[in-house]
């Protein structure tokens, strides 16, 4: 018990972060430290301009999107999910010599880090968001085996890897990295999002591809197998 609190204090001191959640609730943490960049309720402004101006991805449906455990861990140690930030088009450096455009990482800023108590409280509060919006159908993922073709669907036939990297960082960079999708995202959310990204984010640049349910099930099954492990 004592050694635990020593570790905790050392962590706090080492990373220089403050925990405010002991007294305040998670909802307050979100309101005070997160709402300047993240929408916590469905935004009234659904314009293309908003997509360009917002400073972080929307979190108003976080409760039906993320796994709580992942949230709590990531908030303490945030890693890059979107290689080009929240709006890739603002971070692009146009190529001057007919090679590919690159991402100007100088335009991206590291994510705020929370302490242990604050991230637990924030994760709890985030998991309460969005359940009443009817965006995700419970049981949409039917839990079948992804089958031998699933990886091919992702990387070649349906063109997902044009925009997403799945393993080892190879793949496109305008969409979020999915190498950790199995730990990060709820399967029913993946089914709903792949079917219709604009239902969540009216002007997002992932196309609605009109895939069959069989394809969506296989792709989700494949993404669920992608997890970062200690060994990697």
């Amino acid at each position: 018990m004592r050694s635990l609190s020593v570790v905790f204090l050392a962590l706090l001191a080492g990373l220089g972060m403050a925990d405010t959640a002991m007294a305040a609730g998670g909802a307050d943490v979100l309101q005070q430290q997160c709402s300047s960049c993240h929408a916590l309720t469905k935004p009234a402004d659904a314009s293309l301009d908003r997509l360009w101006e917002r400073k972080g991805p929307d979190l108003y449906y976080a409760g039906v999107k993320f796994n709580r455990e992942w949230l709590e861990a990531w908030l303490q140690n945030p890693t890059t999910i979107r290689p080009g930030g929240v709006m890739y088009a603002k971070a692009i450096k146009a190529s001057a010599d007919k090679t590919a455009d690159t991402i100007d990482t100088g335009k991206l800023t590291p994510h705020v880090k929370l302490g242990k108590a604050d991230s637990a409280a924030a994760a709890d509060a985030l998991m309460k968001l969005g359940a009443d919006l009817n965006l995700v159908q419970k049981g949409a993922f039917k839990n079948g085996s992804p089958g031998p073709m699933a990886k091919m669907l992702f990387s070649k036939l349906r063109g997902c890897s044009s925009c997403h990297s799945a393993k080892g960082g190879d793949g496109g960079r305008s969409g979020p990295e999915l190498g950790d999708a199995g730990s990060r995202l709820q399967p029913d959310f993946m089914v709903a999002y792949i079917n219709n990204p604009q239902k969540f984010d009216p002007h997002i640049w992932m196309p609605t591809l009109g895939l069959t349910d069989a394809d969506v099930q296989k792709l989700t099954g494949y993404l669920l197998t992608l997890k970062h492990t200690e060994a990697q």
Partner: peptide, 12 residues
């Protein structure tokens, strides 16, 4: 960005 087929995704 230059509309010439060389987007950030093109290498993938």
């Amino acid at each position: 960005a230059n509309r010439d087929g060389n987007g950030i995704n093109s290498t993938a």
